[in-house]
Amino acid sequence: MDGWMEFLLSDSSVTITCANGKWNKQVSCEPVDCGLPDKYHVHPAHFNFPEGTTYGKKSTFQCREPAQLVGTNNTLTCLEDGLWSFPEALCELRCPAPPPVPNAVLQTKRCNETGLKVGTLCKYKCKPGYHVTNKPKRRAFKRQCTEDGSWLEGACEPVTCDPPPPIFHGSYHCTDGFRFDSVCRLNCSDPAGNTAAAATGGSAHTLSVSLSHSPHARTGEECELTCRESNNDVVILPSNMTVESVLKEHWRNPHKVKSIVCTMGLKWYPHPELLHCIKGCEPFMGDNYCDSVNNRAFCNYDGGDCCQSTVKTKKVIPFPMSCDIRDECSCRDPNAIENRKAEHVHSLG
């Protein structure tokens, strides 16, 4: 006897036919499987499936730190449509009470509590004698609870004063450097201030010291510095550094000096033995052409002309054209995006 039968499988159906005493298909009914919940179904959370993930089975979830459970029912059920039930509780990211900031006072009282919502702002004020780090004119700052449950950083640093003018170099002593409340006392070896000091000591380093007043410099008198060779600059080099090493190692950036002063201690400042002449920068920085002579820290890496991320035209053009873009016309600026990415890849490796 021939015939047919229809089976309902979930939301679909299948028909099997009996012909010549045999069914043309083998059919079985399998339970609906919801699989793993989407990671955003309850986020951020860990799921447990003690009974599996098929129809009617239940799953429980625990919030991942620092998220906290809001609600009481942390159970999901696999429904007949193959989807997990809508959660009756959720995991909400919150921040613990922010850790104290040294030398700062918390101004927002509610920030002493834990479980603060993402986006919460806490205001701080630096104590007297301190200011916001890298912002000398500001004493107040805010920290915010971020989406990963942590707090944005904020810090205070001591107020500092500029050193006394170079004329006083070597003739004062301070109780706490140049910090707030430090007391600096001057030691005047020459109260009259009119003893002369010989203005010599530069010629040994190919320096030409021009005196605008007399062969002898009085206390407080400044003398301009020039190099015998044109387009050279006077710089301070420590004893372990040479002119050759500065030119060879492009990252060296010695301090440029335009004048020296006769101090109250009757000595030149800076000391002439520390002064040297090095090749200056050509006046082509920031002209969209990478000049090899300027591709060094001392010349701000040619004003950014040698890196694609910093040149205005976004295209590096070496000058002259024969300049090797893998050597003297390469992107040397350590702060350029290209080099920061390279350092990041190297650290991961």
Rank of each mutant, 00 (worst) to 15 (best):
Gly349Asp: 12
Cys277Trp: 10
Leu93Gln: 07
Lys258Arg: 07
Ala155Lys: 11
Ser245Phe: 02
Arg228Lys: 14
His250Val: 12
Lys127Val: 07
Arg138Leu: 15
Gly280Arg: 04
Asn295Gln: 07
Cys111Arg: 01
Asp176Gln: 13
Cys126Lys: 01
Leu79Ala: 13
Leu8Tyr: 01
Thr310Glu: 06
Arg138Asp: 15
Lys256Arg: 15
Pro98Asp: 04
Gly201Asn: 09
His46Asp: 01
Pro44Ser: 10
Pro320Arg: 06
Lys256Glu: 14
Leu207Ile: 14
Thr15Cys: 01
Ala204Val: 06
Leu90Ala: 14
Ala192Thr: 11
Asn187Glu: 13
Arg138Ala: 15
Cys329Lys: 07
Pro270Ile: 02
Thr195Ala: 09
Asn103His: 13
Arg252His: 15
Phe141His: 06
Cys223Tyr: 13
Phe168Gln: 10
Ala155Thr: 11
Met5Gly: 13
Gly35Arg: 09
His271Arg: 08
Asp327Leu: 08
Val105Thr: 02
Cys306Phe: 04
Val118Trp: 03
Ser208Asn: 15
Arg138Lys: 15
Gly71Glu: 11
Thr75Tyr: 07
Phe86His: 02
Gly154Ser: 10
Met1Asn: 02
Thr310Asp: 03
Pro158Asp: 07
Gly129Glu: 08
Ala140Met: 08
Val311Tyr: 00
Asn134Trp: 01
Glu153Trp: 02
Ser10Leu: 05
Ile16Asp: 05
Phe168Ile: 04
Asn232Pro: 00
Ser292Thr: 07
His255Ile: 12
Ser203Thr: 13
Val257Arg: 04
Asp148Lys: 13
Cys329Ala: 12
Ala104Tyr: 00
Asn335Pro: 00
Pro238Ile: 02
Asn112Trp: 09
His346Ile: 05
Asn335Asp: 14
Phe178Arg: 06
Arg228Gly: 12
Gln68Val: 15
Val235Tyr: 04
His213Pro: 01
